[in-house]
Design a protein around this nucleic acid. Sequence first.
DNA 1: GCAAGGTC
Length: 766
Amino acid sequence: MHLIIAEKHDAAKRIAQILSGNKPRPYRIGGVEAFKFDDKVVMGLSGHIVGVDYPPGYNNWQKVDCKELIRAEIVVRPINDKIVNALRSLGKEADRITVATDYDREGELIGVEALKIAKEANPRLREDRVRYSAIVKDEILKAFKNAGKVDYDLAASGEARQIIDLVWGAALTRYISLTSGRLGKEFLSVGRVQSPTLALIVDREKEIQSFVPKPYWEIYADLERDLRVQHARGRIWEKDEVDSIVARLGPVGIIRSIQTKPRVEKPPAPFDTTSFISAASGIGFSAANAMRIAEWLYVNGFISYPRTDNTVYPPSIDLVALTRLFLKGEFSKEAEKLLGGKMVPTRGKRSTTDHPPIYPTAPVNKSELKEEQWKIYELVVRRFFATLAESCVWDATSLKVDIGPEPFRASGARLVEPGWRYYYPYSKAEERILPALKEGERLRVLGHSVEAKETQPPARYGQGKLIKLMDELGLGTKSTRHDIISKLYARAYVQGNPMRPTNTAYAVVDTLQKYAPTITKPEMTQTLEKDMTQISEQKIKEDEVIEESRVMLTSVFDELSCNQEDIGQSLKDGLRTDKIVGTCEKCNSELIIRRGHRGSRFIGCSGYPECRFTLPLPRSGAVVVTDKVCEKHGMFHIRIINKGKRPWDLGCPHCNFLDWQAKKALELAEGKESGEGKGAKARPAKKTVRGSGAKAAKKASGPSNADGDGLARLPGIGPKTLEKLASAGIKTSGELAGANAKSLAAKTGLSEKKIAAWKSAAKALS
DNA sequence: GCAAGGTC
């Protein structure tokens, strides 16, 4: 039997279809679906099926000296047992195995991992490797006709990367976590990609903080015929000069020249992962969310593989036939127009061997997708169309006017031919139409204005911009960059979008930049890339590169241990400030996030034990203190970040607590005790509160609300109830708490029981 | 409970 190994299930399926000429038989083995035809079986892996790690003896962070990790044994263990087992049993049956994983470095390593497992089960296996750049018939058939050798050197270079990443990452992650006392769920992490990325964000923030704005002025004049012109000097840095220019202005402007030239905007290049995420970011998607949706669209057959560095369509894709598929449905107008043109595809700068650019593979009805999925799908379709469309052409006019001795100018732009912009309307193309004028024409000056401005600090990085920057610096890959960004949020290193570093991030980056600068710079990745190339070219041995790296890390640790005390202190100082939530309403001390026993957290007063004011916090997730302030309590809003979930904006912890109390009181009054209610510790910050909190916020902003102290926040009170209560003279929760339930019921028509429940809830609230 | 890299 001839066993063929692909990188993923989907690739296996399509390769089997092409090689078999029709539909291969699905062939289940140990819960894994492979494909069988003739004497062949094609099986898909799931990327890496084994991973490197330390033996279990090193699991205890406190007991193992992190320096030991530099030279500790590293073991390879299966990540996916099902696939490993299936591979073993298929390997036993086979006499030949062909590696058909993706045509790149990691693909070679993934292939070798699989090969090792199969050969352990059956040492007599003959092996070979096929290389293809797209899973299309010609390409695959050609690849299988010209099978070559497995490139063990290329795989070895990938293995070196794995080991170096693990050793540096694990040792420094543990060091920084132990030194700062942030253990357990709240550990701090360090890595070859994440730390330089975080440093970019921190460095940018420092630039912004230290930016000194410089004042400047711009002079504008309004002329008849609706013409507004700016002084040709643009930014003028001296106020004196502004004044003297203004003094020289006359009552009439004379048109010196007026020139119109065409300006051509070329259509954009096909989407690779970076430009896709960046475009999605422009319409409000986070990097991780955009990739999650793209992945779904790919798995369901609507778009091509979303993880690619390629910006050139391979000739094997029939672009015209693909466009014709869109003649029916949502994009029929666009498809028809496009097919009437030349349809010459644009080419980007990068052309790679593993996957084509991202393009739509099939039309789909809008009603079949969720709103977000549709938006991403539409983006991919429109980008695809744009890459086949004509240039966008403008008439650009530049106008020069003299007012007295002073030169002024204006520029106009008129859209002549929208070209690709017709299909891809994501960036606005604004026209500025100038009045029709002739050289030498004289216009009266109606007035002028001097605008005082100042230079602006550089902008914070949004996720789209950061992904692009990482790409340029070689940080991470198309498949990991969005994950790395998510990781920075999960560690509470950054918040918001554009991204702002927390004080924790400052402390960690400062420490690393001072004592372990290697890990904070993109150069580490660039050097590693060079070493990997040398390994794959047999110029250095894998072991030499790893050994060199270990020696380097050893000296980093020497430097760290020399400055142990300083580092511990500065980390703890930085970390403390991220924990200040507000000021205690009882004693004016700082309220900070504190740890209770058994991993619980709460907000406590730093005046303890004299002051015992506390507020509860949820048990799980990283607690982030945001910069949004509650108007009522003056406390910073809290955000909870759980791995793999959306961040939860808990809001003001005091408001959250009051909401919860009110809700509890209501439940008790209605007699439906939820299991956790009775005798349970106060745990307001639970998901159940979230709904009512959000509703409450909506209600509170409703127009019919005359409520100053949270009447609308009581669970079960909607706008209609509010009106009814208001008609009986009840406008605040205080008034409700003091009202007689029976007579109020009679006045409003509301049930007495409900009113009684609201009353006790209102009491809890006030 | 650590990294980064695949894929789901």
